[in-house]
Design a protein around this nucleic acid. Structure first.
Length: 269
DNA sequence: ATCGGGACCTGCTTGC
DNA sequence: TGCAAGCAGGTCCCGA
């Protein structure tokens, strides 16, 4: 799934084509996502003018003059803009006509969601989110303070949304490698100096990925339907057994809190 | 309060 | 070649 850079790339890709335009017709082909698409979705959205498209954590917020949608792409979701004549693909669950284009939500695994942002469910999802990784609030001192009495592995810690949003499995492994911290190290056993470095690496790796247009793994397609290409620059993720780019020792992998984790056993401690 | 694991789905890869 | 098991980038929710 799309991690934060993919969501950011999607927002940047679709926003210019939506803002100031009318959603002239809305069709829900499959309402059964992680939570059902609200039954009044099409009716309430039709003929609305889009006023903003922004990202918060890995959520997209699409606002019109009278309402706002909260969407998450789950593990396999994507939005793309196509010519309305383009044949539907399997798992194109929602179609929104906007100007002479059509915005389609596509999601094979249906772990994503489309909700009204003011619904109780949506509030629950966004109310307890931690700081954005690229904001000034997120820094080594913040991480160090949050890590007190946290016994979980540092990798799980930085993937916790209340600590910092938008750090998924790929970028957790990548930033820990760049900071030289072993992913299984207990969160409360790391100095502030090391957290300073880690925060800096998280910012760097996410900013680079956004710059590159997002990582493309199997399911991501950006707003124009073109793949990103950041996967070529990954240092450890998915490189089990390959040589470390710093020391040439073999990259290792292990499961941490149920997630595959990649690291260099020599460079990370 | 904190933590790990199951659950939600489909599709691709792998191994028999 | 065919089939079934295993696994995938997220994250909520439950039970320990």
């Amino acid at each position: 799934m799309p991690e934060l850079p993919e969501v950011e790339t999607t927002v940047r890709g679709i926003a210019p084509f939506l803002i100031g335009r009318k959603f002239s017709s809305v069709t829900v082909n499959q309402p059964s996502l992680r939570w059902p698409i609200p039954p009044d979705f099409s009716q309430r959205l039709e003929n609305e003018i889009c006023v903003s498209v922004i990202r918060r954590a890995k959520y997209l917020l699409i606002e019109t003059e009278t309402t706002k949608i909260l969407s998450h792409l789950g593990m396999s979701g994507s939005f793309r803009l196509v010519d309305p004549q383009t044949p539907l693909k399997t798992h194109d669950h929602v179609q929104i006509q906007v100007g002479d284009l059509e915005l389609r939500y596509h999601d094979p695994r249906r772990f994503g969601c489309l909700l009204w942002a003011d619904s109780e469910r949506a509030r629950q999802l966004i109310d307890n989110l931690g700081p954005e990784p690229l904001s000034d609030v997120f820094c080594g001192e913040w991480l160090y303070r949050q890590s007190k009495r946290r016994h979980i592995a540092v990798k799980s810690f930085i993937m916790t949304n209340a600590v910092v949003v938008g750090v998924g499995n790929i970028y957790a492994s990548e930033s820990l490698f760049l900071a030289g911290i072993h992913p299984a190290r207990q969160a409360n056993r790391i100095s502030q100096a090391r957290y300073n470095d880690l925060a800096a690496q998280v910012k760097k790796v996410l900013a680079c990925a956004i710059e590159a247009g997002g990582t493309t793994l199997r399911d991501f397609v950006n707003g124009q339907g073109e793949p990103g290409y950041f996967q070529q620059t990954l240092s450890v993720y998915g490189r089990d057994g390959d040589p470390c780019k710093k020391c040439h020792h073999a990259i290792g992998s292990r499961t941490i809190a149920g997630r595959n984790s990649y690291f260099c056993p020599r460079c990370q401690s």
